[in-house]
């Protein structure tokens, strides 16, 4: 860990705060995945980790490497862009697959179509 000693103190503290915040948010997202009750509730928790959790850790990494190599290091942006752009796509795909499966099983918990069903149909 000796290379970290070369960091100026304010930068080191900022990087420490960012790493801690990112790890905490990722933990919160994963914990939500564990804790929520239904699949559709669980779908919301991971986006904490994929939006702010990863941004904080990547920002810390950029800070540390830029300071250590004394030149602008921004290749972390690649990972960031990749994750930020692809996560909505994958989550949407899985959500649609889950909806499709639930509908095939005629689960009463999910709506039958994107269009709202006419309210208060008279019972047959």
């Amino acid at each position: 860990m000796t290379h970290l000693a070369e960091l100026p103190a304010p930068l080191a503290l900022l990087a420490a705060a960012l790493v801690l915040a990112g790890a905490f948010l990722s933990l919160a997202g994963s914990f939500g995945l564990l804790r929520m009750r239904t699949f559709y509730d669980r779908l919301h928790a991971p986006t904490i980790a994929t939006s702010m959790g990863i941004s904080c850790v990547l920002l810390a990494s950029m800070l540390v490497f830029t300071a250590l190599q004394s030149r602008l290091v921004i290749h972390e942006l690649l990972v960031g862009a990749l994750v930020v752009l692809t996560t909505p796509v994958t989550l949407m795909l899985v959500a649609r697959a889950a909806l499709h499966r639930d509908r095939l099983e005629k689960s009463p918990a999910v709506p039958r179509a994107a269009r709202p069903e006419p309210a208060e149909e008279p019972a047959e």
């Binding site: 860990m1 970290l4 000693a5 960091l7 103190a9 304010p10 080191a12 503290l13 990087a15 420490a16 705060a17 790493v19 801690l20 990112g22 790890a23 905490f24 990722s26 933990l27 997202g29 994963s30 914990f31 995945l33 564990l34 980790a49 850790v57």
Partner: peptide, 23 residues
């Protein structure tokens, strides 16, 4: 500040390991 950063990294890694366990 070096101690703070290295401890933060350690704690962050423990938290990420816990997150790994949850998933």
């Amino acid at each position: 500040s070096l101690a703070v950063l290295s401890w933060s990294l350690l704690i962050a890694q423990v938290m990420l390991a816990l997150a790994f366990g949850c998933t």
